[in-house]
Amino acid sequence: MSVATIPAELAPAIPPRRRQLLFGAGFAAAGSAVLILTLLGAYLQQRHGVGPDWLKDNNIPLTQPTMQLFTLLMSMFTVQWAVHSIARNQRGYTYLASLITIVLGLAVLNQTWFLYTEVGLAMTQPEGPLFYAVTGAHLAMLGAAILFLGVTTLRALGGETSSFRPDGFSAAALYWHVMAGLYFAVWLGVYVLK
């Protein structure tokens, strides 16, 4: 009995086209951006209509939103560190960078929750629905970004992601960057120009 060998003249299998996740994440990020920017536009329009009475019964501190902004700025570096590391098969650094990014994201979630209790804005107030719609939509996007990065990291632990297939981290990072960029618009429109 002889052992079969693969003939050398056979063409190598064409590797699957990559970037599927990256394109998908790009579309998801674009859709989320349109949603949040539209909400922000509606918020600004209503605030303009109400005039100086807008949020006169509430005090929105700037400390927490600005801390959140800088936290997200740091997380943009760490998530890119994860992409850089997986592209070089430095798995330890990849896990570390992802973990730090997720912790920073959770810190922003926590601080937003604290901010909500500080502001004490009721849904029955005229500012309530749009304030919570804008900030809540961004919070949901942050949650989705954390989940996306977490699942990608777990899949990397299972060996599905490597320098040969880094798409998962690139896609999660793309979504993360768009989320952080949108926070800048929310920070400026809702918290700074209040």
Partner: peptide, 8 residues
Amino acid sequence: AHVVVGHI
């Protein structure tokens, strides 16, 4: 976005 605002 408007549907979301209408709901909340």
